[in-house]
Design a protein around this nucleic acid. Structure first.
Lengths: 279, 279
DNA sequence: GCATATGGCTGCAAATTTGCAGGAAGCGCC
DNA sequence: GGCGCTTCCTGCAAATTTGCAGCCATATGC
């Protein structure tokens, strides 16, 4: 039994004719006749008598109509669920590095969430533990371009990188902060490896740690522009812009690429990165 | 919003995957995905998150599902309305002459109604007042073939006719019973007119009246075979079989010709007339 | 590492539904 | 009596939905 055909029964009862029901439901009168015939066959009982030019519900039809009325009330309530939300609705789980989340996304998050009251953002910053393929995140911001997978990938932007070293090299040899092996492909790691620095004593991908050590004027390292902040103005440090930038990639679950909430969130993430490129 | 799509939501929630819902509803997994996308667009809210390989209902979806559950209960009750009736169900209004109803149909009505507990017969025997075109009857048994109309017409059979006159013509001249002018076309009326009888003193289409007067052995008239009964064995009467029979026609409302209840009733009416032809 | 099973998406064809147009019938009004 | 309006049915074409096949990805077991 097709539940939607039940609405035909109610309309014919209310209007008394196929033509009246047709106007009410805004479907063709031929369609009303056919769908009524179909639900009548499905139910196996006659639903209307034809008397004096009008369709009159049978006893069985009256019994059916009591239930249809109740179903219509529930359908109306479902429609109100829809109306209770204005704008895109949803919860987006964004997997990214701490730095990206804290310094690129978080500063703009409040205004974005204010502008879209139906949205919720969840930042997954321990991204090593998130399996994108298992739908454990909706979006992922990656520093490496994954070769393939069940997702849609696009380039978010390019991040400028700065090499920091103490201005005064007279003191003790500064420690060198490098990125772990699995990040060998990123420009920062390649740059540092090419310089053949000694005293490599700190290995981490936590840029906050790297930034704190650089700020002590006793360490060497590379930071992305969004993590530099006031370090660029520190006269005890020498900042050198690297020739290469680092690509940043956005991954979107395939089943979400047309989802309205996802689309506005993607636009917002892109704007965050665009602000950076011009800042 | 298509009410039938709401069943898709419930099935995906229950099974956790499109494939599971597909098996449950016995529709293609592609169709599940498309119909879910459609109802999601109609409602304007996301219904499922994808987490750890499963679809999990969102907060709005849970709200919708409460209503869907209630609707499913009503749909089940509607299905039971159908199951409460065994066999064809309906009330058939049959327009016919008194004689046909009383003598051809009524004797067989009890067993027919016993065999079809879901049927009800309503005999409309003041058929002059019934407008078949206004759906005031479902079936009509007519002695004249109507030329046209919004109904399906078929021949029921041919009725044998008997001319009765008193065996002893020595007494007073018997009165002649004839049919009213509007029945001029029927063979009885034509036969009587052709005999150029005098003493035409009784005009009626009520064959019971005609029969009673013939039974008094003081009247002449023509009766259909189903109204003769014991008159044929009365030695004080001379019964002559007319050469012509009278056609009987069945009219069926067009919208009912495929209705199951109507079809079994038509078969029954035909059987009543067939019994007559061989009796 | 390979084979198998499962899930979901896309393109295309088949199936079904819907709308349109025409025709028939009845009713009311002039 | 003729005309206009309304209702409903039927045939056909257009539109939509559904199913199927192929493909891709992931997980599991051997």
């Amino acid at each position: 039994m097709n539940w939607d055909d039940l609405r035909i029964i109610a309309a014919v009862r209310d209007e008394g004719t196929y033509a009246g029901a047709s106007a009410r439901l805004r479907i063709d009168e031929t369609t009303v006749g056919r769908r009524l015939a179909r639900i009548q066959r499905d139910l196996g009982v006659p639903l209307f008598d034809a008397v004096d030019g009008l369709r009159r519900p049978t006893r069985q039809c009256e019994a059916v109509l009591e239930h249809v009325g109740a179903m219509a009330a529930h359908a109306a309530a479902i429609d109100r669920v829809k109306e209770s939300e204005v704008g895109p609705v949803g919860r987006l789980r964004i997997a990214s590095t701490n730095a990206v989340a804290e310094e690129l996304l978080a500063p703009h998050a409040s205004s974005f969430l204010r502008d879209h009251p139906g949205l919720t953002l969840q930042f997954l910053t321990s991204s090593g533990n998130v399996k994108f393929s298992r739908w454990q995140a909706d979006l992922a911001i990656r520093l490496r371009k994954p070769e393939k997978g069940d997702f849609t990938i696009s380039k978010l932007g390019e991040v400028r990188l700065y090499f920091f070293e103490p201005a005064d090299r007279g003191g003790a040899e500064p420690v060198v902060c490098v990125y772990p092996d699995e990040l060998d492909a990123i420009p920062e790691a390649q740059f540092l490896r090419a310089k053949r620095l000694t005293n490599v004593r700190c290995v981490t991908d936590n840029v906050r740690i790297i930034r704190t050590m650089i700020q002590s004027h006793q360490a060497i390292g590379v930071l992305p522009e969004h993590s530099c902040g006031s370090l660029l103005a520190d006269r005890s440090l020498r900042a050198t812009l690297l020739p290469r930038r680092r690509d940043v990639w956005l991954l979107v679950q395939n089943h979400l690429k047309r989802d309205p909430a996802t689309r506005v969130t993607i636009d917002w993430v892109r704007a965050c990165f665009k602000d950076l490129s011009h800042g």
